[in-house]
């Protein structure tokens, strides 16, 4: 009986230790590793670059009507919070005729604002940019996203146009 009790006690201890170790590993996996572009439940899709404390991936998605849509995924390389400004990030579109259009995010609820991403964390947002007509090219200054200079432009073609051209 005593032996059984001791065995049960050690089994319970082992299970508790397993829970604690498993939890510790889960927490360890939750820290964004600088330059990794990997984070649980986040997929860094698109063009990747680094601006200040941020590892950023930007992807042009399928347009919603004439509005272009950009998907932003960002990971904080630093130990402390860093600024992310999706409200005032510089985005420029070019129409098929070559006209340049400064784009403003679609924000009917007035949600967009400057926020801070905590150290070693990651996040993502998708934002649409209404335009008078379908845009052939879209460029975003990712440096303005992090309030840094000089400008760092990433440009994207229209994925629908590319799909139509590609046999």
């Amino acid at each position: 009986m005593v032996g059984d009790g001791q065995g049960l006690a050690s089994l319970v201890r082992m299970r508790h230790a397993t829970v604690i170790i498993g939890f510790a590993l889960a927490i360890a996996a939750c820290a964004y590793k600088p330059g990794s572009y990997q984070y649980p439940s986040r997929e860094f899709v698109g063009q990747r670059t680094t601006v200040g404390c941020l590892d950023i991936a930007v992807d042009r998605r399928t347009d919603m009507g004439s509005a272009a849509v950009l998907g932003y995924t960002f990971g904080n390389r630093c130990d402390g919070p860093t600024v992310i400004d999706l409200a005032w990030v510089n985005v420029i579109g070019r129409t098929a005729t070559g006209a340049e259009v400064t784009l403003v995010p679609y924000d009917p609820k007035g949600e967009l604002t400057v926020l801070r991403l905590d150290g070693r964390q990651a996040g993502s947002e998708a934002i649409s940019y209404p335009a008078p007509e379908s845009l052939g090219q879209l460029c975003v200054d990712v440096a303005s996203l992090a309030h840094t200079k000089p400008a760092q432009w990433l440009c994207f073609g229209n994925p629908e146009a590319l799909a139509m051209v590609t046999p």
């Binding site: 997929e43 992807d59 990651a122």
Partner: peptide
């Protein structure tokens, strides 16, 4: 967060 970017 918002969501992962799923390409669409």
């Amino acid at each position: 967060g918002g969501s992962s970017s799923g390409g669409s």
